[in-house]
Design a protein around this nucleic acid. Structure first.
Lengths: 206, 206
DNA sequence: TCATGTGAAGACATTCACAGCA
DNA sequence: TGCTGTGAATGTCTTCACATGA
């Protein structure tokens, strides 16, 4: 269990979701080539990924779904629950809140933030919305570790600055620009315009 | 201009947006180290990326913003406009429509699709919404080349199947599963649950 | 026989470091 | 002097291919 690459982490979280689906369907074991097909990967890659998280010990004819799920969860969730804040409650913020809330047991959306007076102090999908001026205070009070930024481009950097000064170490950024942050803060960019342009490029040049 | 890597394509689209911003601000030239800082990259990487798209010929003291923008656009948009469909007009679909529409001149959202009777035949953000049963027909009529899937997990594969049979070659998939499609179709997954779990992992292990 | 686990090879991407130019 | 353009080195990820075990 030495260095696990970023791509591996992505695939492992995907395996987990696939395995959860299979488990619900009553499946008890699975081969690497099946997991490869379902995840759009290759058998050798699946085996390496599972090896890299320190999984081992089950019989040779496939992996046991239950044991594998436990290994993955232990590896990914190590250290318990993550408290999440969503900053910017427009269509995108709501959509993300809906996706996450209730689905991932180790992840709790602890607070929403916006500056629109119509939203502030309301409860949306069961989560309280605060004014964005209270960001630093609420982040500390509720021990929030991760923030999702869905505010417009022009406001994103200011939000990131406040989050960083409040001690946040992980940001998922949907604003279409690169945030400037200290190196100990992990930023994942999900720039939607970039995504569309990339697909446009490849669908044209293939 | 041989093989340009996927990562390079992503960065190049980002450079374009940064350069457009600078151009609007009246900036005429830029150094690789500045573009590197603004894009979260490194000077050598920027220079390689620009080299790889066949840019060359401007003076040594930095890149000319205008010329560079033209080179990038020629490389990325080669072949003209892209017609886009968005399938699934919930919060996420609307949000994406809003991000793209009007901002990227070479990209036109030609149709929306949903199965909710309240949405069908309505015009949203200036774009007509069709019933999802008309997908294949409208895709062909309007010469749509790229589709964005924002329907729930359980419906995504069926939508993808229809899109593929209608001749679509590029799909941007926001449903949290891996679509099964022929190899000549380019799929870009933007699984939101994966994104959050990845950030959670790295913010914890750093 | 058929699948796993893994050393080793290969492919790919990043970064260094310096020649060449204005 | 201070930048770009780029060969070469390095680092990272993927894939092969086979020994091993039930």
């Amino acid at each position: 269990m030495e260095h696990v690459s970023e791509k591996s982490i992505e695939r492992i979280t995907l395996y987990r979701r696939i395995l959860l689906r299979l488990q619900k369907a009553g499946r008890e074991s699975i081969y690497s080539h099946e997991l490869a097909r379902l995840s759009g990967s290759l058998p050798a890659k699946v085996r390496r990924d599972l090896m890299s998280i320190g999984y081992s010990g089950t019989p040779v004819h496939g992996y046991k779904v239950g044991v594998l799920l436990e290994s993955i969860s232990e590896f990914i969730d190590r250290g318990g629950k993550t408290n999440v804040a969503i900053v910017g409650i427009g269509n995108l913020g709501r959509s993300i809140a809906g996706y996450i809330q209730g689905r991932r047991s180790k992840m709790d959306i602890s607070a929403l933030f916006d500056k629109d007076p119509i939203l502030v102090d309301r409860v949306i999908i069961g989560i309280r919305c605060y004014h964005i001026d209270e960001l630093a205070k609420v982040v500390k009070e509720k021990d929030i570790q991760l923030a999702i930024i869905t505010v417009p481009e022009g406001e994103a950097q200011a939000v990131a600055d406040v989050l960083v000064s409040a001690g946040i170490k992980g940001i998922l950024n949907y604003a279409p620009l690169k945030l400037q942050t200290p190196p100990d803060v992990y930023i994942e960019d999900r720039d939607m315009i970039m995504a569309v342009e990339k697909v446009a490029y490849y669908s044209r040049n293939k």
